[in-house]
């Protein structure tokens, strides 16, 4: 079961002179559901964006099944089709209907037939409870609905890993639940997920590993029980106390 999918080694990222990630080492195995937590500016989103190269690392390596994703012959588009991403601001394609949002990648990138792509899209849109809205344009549906469509769009590509970049942070509190529920079910289904989140209940109850980041370094990387009940550092304790109080 411990097949290594993504390995990050000595990753460093600078924006100008500002060091955002310092010497990050990180490993994701198949089936892992990893929550990455930490306060704003701790570098957790940047880490996620480096993993699918939306941000280019300043130094260090990232391996996908042992292959360096920054090496010359590596097909970035093929890699990205296997590592999906769900954004904080949804980023549905505004010019396409809900259904076409889920079809376009399958057709253009995976070269599936329209019929096959549509069947798959309908399948996943039904799973996230959006099958009634396939003819709607993104501007016609709510934030929670958009995020569920975005998740379906990611799933349609049959990714090996799905990255979530604060998927519920831009949502009204009442819509957080519907998206969290979809993610909970995905976790149970065995999908490998890396989730940057402020939802402590998800980190504690759903994920099998929690990574706590602070000021560009990974402070703790362990099982949820350990981090929530027996945090090793003062910084972790303070952060969790603050977060849990808020919830």
């Amino acid at each position: 079961m411990n097949t290594e999918i993504i390995k990050v080694s000595h990753l460093e990222k600078k924006f100008g002179d500002h060091l955002v990630l310092k010497d990050i080492d990180f490993l994701a195995n198949k089936g892992d559901v990893i929550s990455i937590i930490g306060s704003s500016g701790s570098g957790k989103s940047t880490l996620l964006r480096c993993i699918n190269l939306l941000e280019k690392p300043t130094s260090g390596s990232i391996y996908f099944h042992g292959n360096d994703i920054q090496s010359q012959g590596f097909s970035l588009t093929e890699y990205r089709s296997k590592v999906g991403m769900v954004f904080q601001s949804f980023n549905l394609f505004n010019n396409l209907s809900v259904l076409d949002n889920c079809i376009v990648g399958q057709q253009k990138v995976l070269k599936r037939s329209h019929k096959e792509a549509e069947e798959k899209a309908m399948d996943y849109l039904t799973k996230v409870g959006m099958s009634q809205y396939i003819h709607a344009k993104p501007k016609q549906i709510s934030g929670g609905q958009k995020q569920r469509v975005a998740i379906a769009r990611g799933l349609c590509m049959d990714p090996e890993v799905l990255l979530f970049d604060e998927p519920t942070s831009a949502l009204d509190p009442e819509m957080v639940g519907e998206v969290m529920e979809v993610m909970r079910r995905l976790a149970i289904s065995g999908l490998t997920m890396l989730v940057v989140t402020h939802e402590m209940s998800f980190a504690r109850d759903v994920s099998n590993r929690v990574v706590f980041m602070d000021q560009g370094v990974i402070v703790e990387d362990t099982v949820p029980d350990e981090i929530f009940n027996n945090p090793k550092t003062e910084r972790t304790r303070e952060f969790l106390a603050r977060m849990l109080q808020k919830n």
């Binding site: 939306l54 588009t77 093929e78 990205r80 999906g84 980023n91 549905l92 990648g105 990138v109």
Partner: peptide, 14 residues
């Protein structure tokens, strides 16, 4: 919005 490009890239579009 830059997010449109990022979303397209993140599903592997050229």
């Amino acid at each position: 919005d830059k997010g449109q490009t990022e979303a397209a890239q993140s599903i592997g579009m050229t």
